[in-house]
Design a protein around this nucleic acid. Structure first.
Lengths: 219, 219
DNA sequence: CTTGACATAGAACGAATGTTCCGCTAAACT
DNA sequence: AGTTTAGCGGAACATTCGTTCTATGTCAAG
């Protein structure tokens, strides 16, 4: 319950456990902790370990050697580890072709090419795929050659979404903000200096994905 | 030496170790492995463990309980964990102001606001800081309002770098590709449809950072 | 058929490791 | 002062756990 105050020893113990874990891939024994923290008695280590459990920093398993588990938060904080989403890189996007869509590859291991995105950059994780942009025809979407576009397969789009649309009549793919306007559809370039396009026949449009993220690596 | 073939048992053992580790935060004991893999004898488990070490899947520490360590690659592959870099988000970037530079905050824990970027998106990790773009004045750099620009403090820039430059005369910050041309400097917009700017007096320029990455989150 | 490498099983041993109990001290509380 | 409590040290104890040794079965090569 009592939150903050850890004794000097307890802080040292915690630090050591984290360090040892990182180093060896398994937790230290009680005696190893004692040695590191200058505690001669195993019972004292045991005592302080239980205190740390009370404070919520550790979990322990009884009667199990090295049965210490760091709390999730601590692990994340100390390592430079984070939750990431593997987004399959399914191909390239040209202006002159519909976007390639992902097959039903096992999203866990299947695809060989993928990019890793930290989860907090993405609102959802389902149905994602990534494309590399070829050519400079997406400039009015403020998307450059070489950029990586992370898209999501969506059943429905809503006003304001930035989507990849395949225009069957013109036979071209563009990235635009899309808006319903009565029976028509307005395609709005991301670049505010450019004019929107009004589509009279929305059936000629095929929304192939909603753009979730654009990543540009320089150099 | 011999690469590929793992016996059915060995695969099961490997799977179990990974699963157990994930579940408990520490590796299983030999007897626990035996139980999971339907092996009655600890010596057989020991035997197979050593085989897995030979194959490069495991590391072991002698005479240490639960002294098993998975090979790095395996850990990464099973979890959805990856190496990330925490980049401090130090402020906003306007056209009308020099870019704010990071203080000497402890880059580990210090800054409260930061974004996490998977390491493979970034070539180096030193001296990084991130800025959020305000206003639409960076359009000719194909950078939009709300984009996040990850920059790096560099002592020297080289030809072709995309940099943030503070133009003292015009009192404005822009993002441009920069080139030395004799005693002059050429600033080239990322948008190929736009004209370059020639700077006669390079002293009026202050290169404040090299742009490493641009991230645009939609929605 | 014999031999040897390989894989397995069972058991015994000893070291590694967690647990418990007793006593001591200093500070806080009544 | 007397009592309580948190924290510590030491030692004995009971398991847990890795190691080792012997024995058995299989299979392919000689």
């Amino acid at each position: 319950m009592a939150k903050g105050k850890l004794s000097d020893r307890q802080r040292r113990i915690l630090d050591f456990i984290m360090e040892f874990n990182e180093e060896n891939g398994y937790p230290p024994s009680i005696r190893e902790i004692g040695e590191a923290a200058n505690i001669s008695s195993t019972s004292v280590v045991n005592y302080n370990l239980n205190r740390l459990v009370d404070e919520g920093y550790l979990d322990r398993d009884q009667n199990v050697s090295r049965g210490i588990r760091l709390t999730e938060k601590l692990v994340r904080a100390t390592h430079q580890l984070a939750d990431v989403v593997r987004v399959p890189l399914v191909g390239r996007i040209f202006a002159s072709e519909p976007v390639p869509l992902p097959g039903t590859d096992s999203q866990i291991f299947g695809t060989d090419e993928a990019i890793e995105i930290t989860r907090d950059l993405l609102p959802s994780t389902e149905g994602l795929f990534a494309l590399e942009v070829k050519g400079d025809s997406m400039i009015d979407a403020m998307v450059n050659e070489g950029d990586i576009v992370v898209m999501r397969r969506v059943p429905e789009w809503s006003n304001g979404d930035m989507v990849a649309v395949w225009n069957k009549e013109r036979e071209e793919t563009t990235l635009k903000h899309i808006y319903r306007e009565g029976s028509k559809v307005r395609l709005q370039p991301a670049n505010p200096r450019m004019k929107p396009i009004i589509i009279e026949n929305p059936e000629t449009l095929e929304v192939q994905g909603k753009v979730m993220l654009v990543v540009r690596q320089l150099n």
